[in-house]
Simulated scan of single mutants.
Amino acid sequence: MGRRDVGILHPGSMGAQVAAQAVAAGATLRWLPQGRSEATRERAGDIGLRPVADLRELAGACEILLSVCPPAAALDVAAQVADAGFRGVYVDANAVGPERMAEITDVFAGGAVTVVDGGITGPPPREPGRTRLYLCGDDAAVARVRDLFEGTALTPFVLPGPVGRASALKLAFAAYNKISYALAAQACALADGHGVLDELVDLAGHLLPDTPLGTPEHLATAGARAWRWEPEMREIAGACRAAGVSAAFAEAAAATFGRWEAHKDDQAVTAGELIADLGRGTSSGTSPGRKGLPSR
């Protein structure tokens, strides 16, 4: 065959759509079903991913490996790939900070692996213009990854400079984008505790209609994803400290998302339930919240 295959670790909701873009561009994508959920297997089948028996087979068959996993697992996944004898371009596209990227690069030190730093911004790529893949690192390796996604719904952007810059940009964007959900929930919990939640939702819907505060159903989407966002906030906190910036906002957001761990992948959770979670167990005796909010 003209070029060796591309591997994806691991195709969750974001990773599956990233893989789908490479498939649509003509690449052959392989993945490791071992230990993955039935939902993940169905996603992989729907987009045409080819299964392999184990990580060593994946490492041997592929010249590019894409790591799209929860940030807390990124370093462990890299170590497993290194142990499997991979030789090629390793793209870490996880929500990790520059310091973690340096650790991931060190995992492959002395081997035949070139690490590319990738930062994905936006939703899982399904339509052009909404999701970007920022890339930095070795010029030749970055060009190969850029070409893999050129013309797809995942738009590649090359950042000049060393590994770490794409991760820093990704986390800076996430700091604003995702912490805004925690701030909205905090404001709603405060209002609920004083009996003015409906009024707050009405006010925010009028003045801030396109924000998590102004759209309760938008806020509700954070519940199912909070288990991934909590470790991302820890990465943001570390990146802030490394830059001499206060990590207080990120640490507070991590604590907020930690309160929603029980809602992992629960697409039916409501904004009212998330707000109630913030009101439980407080020392001020505030209201436990409500089970629903008016929709706008």
Results as ranks from 00 to 15, higher is better:
Met1Gly: 07
Asp5Glu: 12
Val6Gln: 09
Val6Leu: 14
Ser13Trp: 11
Val18Leu: 11
Ala22Glu: 10
Gly26Trp: 15
Thr28Ala: 12
Thr28Glu: 09
Trp31Asn: 05
Leu32Arg: 06
Pro33Ser: 15
Pro33Asn: 10
Arg36Val: 09
Ala39Gln: 09
Arg43Glu: 08
Ile47Ser: 12
Ala53Glu: 06
Asp54Glu: 11
Leu55Pro: 01
Glu57Asp: 02
Leu58His: 02
Leu58Cys: 06
Ala61Asn: 07
Cys62Glu: 04
Glu63Phe: 01
Glu63Tyr: 01
Ile64Val: 13
Leu66Gly: 04
Cys69Ala: 14
Pro70Glu: 06
Pro70Lys: 08
Pro71Phe: 14
Ala73Val: 02
Asp76His: 13
Val77Asp: 00
Ala84His: 09
Gly85Ile: 14
Ala93Tyr: 06
Ala93Ile: 01
Asn94Val: 03
Val96Cys: 13
Glu99Gly: 04
Arg100Ala: 11
Glu103Ala: 15
Thr105Glu: 14
Thr105His: 13
Phe108Thr: 07
Phe108Ile: 02
Ala109Asn: 04
Gly110Asp: 08
Ala112Glu: 11
Val115His: 09
Val116Leu: 08
Asp117Gly: 05
Gly119Phe: 00
Thr121Gly: 11
Gly122Leu: 11
Pro125Ala: 04
Gly129Ser: 07
Thr131Met: 03
Tyr134Cys: 11
Tyr134Ile: 04
Leu135Asn: 05
Leu135Gln: 10
Leu135Ala: 04
Cys136Ala: 14
Asp139Tyr: 02
Ala143Ile: 04
Val145Ser: 04
Val145Ile: 04
Arg146Gln: 05
Asp147Thr: 01
Leu148Phe: 13
Phe149Met: 09
Gly151Asp: 05
Thr152Gln: 11
Thr152Tyr: 15
Ala153Thr: 03
Leu154Asn: 08
Thr155Asn: 03
Val158Met: 08
Pro160Gln: 13
Leu169Gly: 06
Ser180Met: 12
Ala182Tyr: 08
Ala187Arg: 09
Ala187Val: 06
Cys188His: 03
Ala191Arg: 00
Val196Trp: 04
Leu197Ala: 14
His206Gln: 04
Leu207Asp: 00
Pro209Ser: 08
Thr215Asn: 00
Glu217Val: 01
His218Asn: 04
Leu219Gln: 02
Ala220Gly: 01
Thr221His: 03
Trp229Val: 02
Trp229Arg: 00
Arg234Gln: 12
Glu235Ala: 12
Ala237Phe: 14
Ala237Ser: 06
Gly238Cys: 12
Ala247Thr: 02
Glu251Arg: 14
Ala252Met: 10
Ala252Ile: 02
Ala254Ile: 02
Ala254Val: 07
Arg259Gln: 09
Arg259Lys: 09
Arg259Trp: 13
Trp260Met: 14
Trp260Ile: 09
Lys264Leu: 15
Lys264Cys: 08
Thr270Arg: 08
Gly272His: 13
Glu273Trp: 05
Glu273Val: 10
Ile275Pro: 01
Ile275Met: 13
Ala276Leu: 14
Asp277Phe: 00
Gly285Thr: 01
Gly285Pro: 11
Pro288Met: 10
Gly289Trp: 14
Gly292His: 15
Pro294Glu: 13
